[in-house]
């Protein structure tokens, strides 16, 4: 059973532009806590939009769709399980777990088209019972920074409830360490409502996919703000 994880995103102070210095400082922070860098990681989120028979809606987020057509699908390819693929239907609160051939099925069906891919990528640190993955969010084939986030994994527990207190303690230490650097913003964890998606307290890869979708939503909201 996968270990419990918690995703956080960087929320810059109002009026502050996001820059990669934050990422370097956060990595430095992980090292100052005793973390040892042990590799790179990359998770991708792919936005799918419906294609209609009259060809009008292929890219238009604002265009009217028939009621029974999803306006948007999110595909999630997690770094830790390259053989799996997740597709999230947010309005229906549904996360599908499929295998790596799923995007090919979608391609064959020609009903939804992959429009934009965002990659979350960075470095991984081992820190006792924790694993920290600190990374940036950038569009595929571009270096335009869309956000900074981190993933905290606590190896000994897979229960979200049981791991909550220790995650909060870790988060407090992390914020305290980062505060010393006087950076223009802070890391925020936004709870994903797993029960809405029919997921239990036992952590699964589907939980991670949902957390990435939530994190992305927050990053985009922060950019818009």
């Amino acid at each position: 059973m996968p270990a419990a994880k918690c995703l956080m995103h960087w929320h810059p102070n109002p009026g502050v532009t996001l820059n990669s210095q934050i990422l370097a400082e956060a990595c430095g922070c992980a090292e100052s806590l005793g973390g040892t860098k042990d590799g790179r990681w990359k998770t991708s989120i792919i936005f799918y939009r419906p294609m209609t028979r009259d060809g009008t809606a292929a890219g238009g987020a604002q265009q009217q769709q028939p009621n029974d057509v999803a306006r948007e699908l999110l595909g999630v390819a997690l770094h830790e399980r390259p053989g799996l693929y997740f597709s999230i239907l947010r309005p229906q609160r549904l996360v599908l777990q499929a295998d790596a051939a799923f995007p090919l099925v979608m391609e064959k069906l020609q009903s939804y088209k992959a429009r934009v891919t965002l990659n979350f990528e960075g470095f991984q640190y081992q820190l006792g019972d924790f694993c920290l993955r600190i990374g940036k969010c950038v569009p595929n084939n571009s270096e335009t920074l869309r956000g900074i986030m981190m993933e905290v994994e606590y190896y000994p527990l897979s229960s979200i409830e049981k791991s909550r207190a220790i995650m909060e303690d870790f988060f407090d230490i992390w914020q305290e360490t980062l505060a010393k650097k006087s950076l223009p913003g802070r890391f925020i964890h936004v709870e994903s409502n797993f029960s809405d998606y029919g997921l239990s307290d036992n952590y699964s890869f589907q939980h991670t996919a949902i957390q990435y979708a939530t994190c992305l939503q927050q990053l985009m909201a922060a950019v818009r703000a």
């Binding site: 999803a70 597709s87 239907l89 549904l94 599908l96 790596a100 051939a101 099925v105 064959k108």
Partner: peptide, 21 residues
């Protein structure tokens, strides 16, 4: 003929209804 297959979780029917099938 071409065949593409993917394993899926047990909510797959609801998923395809949700995307307009």
């Amino acid at each position: 003929r071409t065949i593409v297959e993917s394993k899926a979780s047990n909510n797959v029917l609801r998923y395809f209804y949700g995307i307009g099938y």
